[in-house]
Design a protein around this nucleic acid. Structure first.
Lengths: 181, 181
DNA sequence: CGGCGCATGTAACTTGTTACATGATTCC
DNA sequence: GGAATCATGTAACAAGTTACATGCGCCG
């Protein structure tokens, strides 16, 4: 069982979805802490189905063309719970911006400054997306069983993005002032 | 050229090192934003040497047994600079703790609480390590050309770890109060 | 002389990405 | 009819991990 399997099980534990929809949810809502590619997703769905942890749903031919909706099985729910019990591993990150910052003495400051501005823009966007999502969720308070947990996850994203932006602002200022030689 | 190649070039741009020493530096100093395994490192060194971006140093048989020290070549420095010019990609993270938090409605709160405490401990350690390193660097101010940049990278680690810990504290409190059902 | 840390390396495996192929539906 | 989006999937490749094999040097 790989990590991909468990995101799928997790999302299907909330409602039946197609592979494409799973990808969309991960991209739209998880992107600040998770990602999956189709090349991982579809084979994983296939394998989960083979092991009967998920199954196909046939919505009385309400379905269009080739679209396949999956739902989680009892065994799947068990597997998911078991995984939730295991402590997550200490995450091993790779932040290219920091690596380039570390060695940035070898290139003109303007280069690094451009990278930092890019980083800043990216995370401003992320922050706005998260705030938007938070607002939506707060509007429909208590409709979803998992509501408060999701808000807490979003809050992690908001806080870390704010921290990134604050650091970015300071670092850009230092570079501009020539404090860093 | 993969990312591993550039960390190696970067570190060798500061001083000649053995593969083992490179690994040690990455583990000791970069762990909060980078990681490498021996299985990546040694083949990468081999390939960099073949392409003449690094070369072996022979310190007049001062060296012990099988140890191989490498230094960067002019071509290697060029390649490194070129890479430093390219904008880093938007990092794609996988934070297991958030995934488990998101789906934590399926397991008892005690389970999630334990994960959060583990996360907290891990990042308290990381924060202390970073503060220690910061202190050391501030003590020998200006000895190293890259000094201020390194301090800025460390600051990123300190700020983000503080944010993680703050979030953790709040989330643990919420869970304990039963605010999250 | 045993264990630990230093030191290098490989092979098998798992994981993940990218590019491609295919085709339906919707909207203009 | 063309473009965008929906939708599924595979194959080739790249990246990364783990376990293993080997052996030196130092310290107690």
């Amino acid at each position: 069982m790989r990590q991909t399997d468990f995101v799928i099980l997790g999302l299907l534990s909330e409602s039946p979805l197609t592979g494409y929809q799973i990808k969309k949810v991960i991209t739209a809502r998880f992107s600040f802490f998770w990602h999956e590619s189709f090349g991982q997703l579809y084979p994983a769905l296939k394998s989960l189905k083979q092991r009967a942890l998920i199954e196909e749903v046939n919505l009385e031919s309400l379905q269009n063309h080739a679209q396949i909706t999956y739902r989680i099985t009892a065994d799947g729910t068990e597997a998911l719970k078991q995984w939730l019990h295991e402590p997550p591993e200490h995450e091993r990150m790779r932040l290219g911006i920091l690596l380039k910052m570390y060695f940035s003495g070898l290139v003109p400051d303007a280069v690094t400054l451009a990278h930092l501005k890019r980083f800043q823009e990216d995370h401003e966007k992320d922050l706005n997306t998260l705030k938007q999502y938070q607002k939506e969720l707060q509007g429909i308070i208590m409709q979803h069983a998992n509501h408060a947990r999701v808000l807490q996850v979003i809050d992690f994203g908001i806080q870390t993005n704010k921290t990134y932006l604050q650091w970015c602002k300071e670092t850009i200022a230092l570079l501009k002032e020539g404090e860093i030689r």
